[in-house]
């Protein structure tokens, strides 16, 4: 088994990510006060996905993990997406 030294992420990367997250939070609040119709929810979700991407890839070090971690994360999210998506075959057409 390899003993991994672990990648040390510099502080400024984290601070830069944090600033981006704050800006995105502000953006999502501002956008939500505009009436875009059904687009609102999709914009909000889009920004949330982007924010969570930043958290996962930088704060949670996914950027520096081996490929298999990313593949597994993809599988988990894919399965959740399938659960939600296939449920809508019932809900949309009822």
């Amino acid at each position: 088994m390899d003993l991994e030294a672990g990648h040390i992420v510099p502080y400024r990367t984290f601070i830069f990510v944090w600033i981006t997250l704050m800006v995105l939070t502000l953006t999502t609040v501002l956008v939500s006060r505009m009436d875009l119709g059904p687009l609102n929810i999709w914009v909000a979700l889009g920004i949330a996905c982007f924010k969570s991407g930043l958290v996962i890839f930088y704060f949670m070090h996914m950027q520096y993990e081996r490929l298999i971690f990313r593949a597994y994360l993809f599988v988990a999210l894919l399965i959740l997406a399938i659960f939600i998506g296939l449920t809508f075959f019932d809900v949309l057409y009822r």
Binding site: T25, V29, N40, A44, A48, S52
Partner: peptide, 18 residues
């Protein structure tokens, strides 16, 4: 971070729906 991650979705879905 996971706790944070979940909140990132809870926030727009519950507080920002218009």
């Amino acid at each position: 971070h996971l706790v944070d991650l979940i909140w990132i979705f809870i926030f727009p879905l519950y507080y920002l729906i218009l």
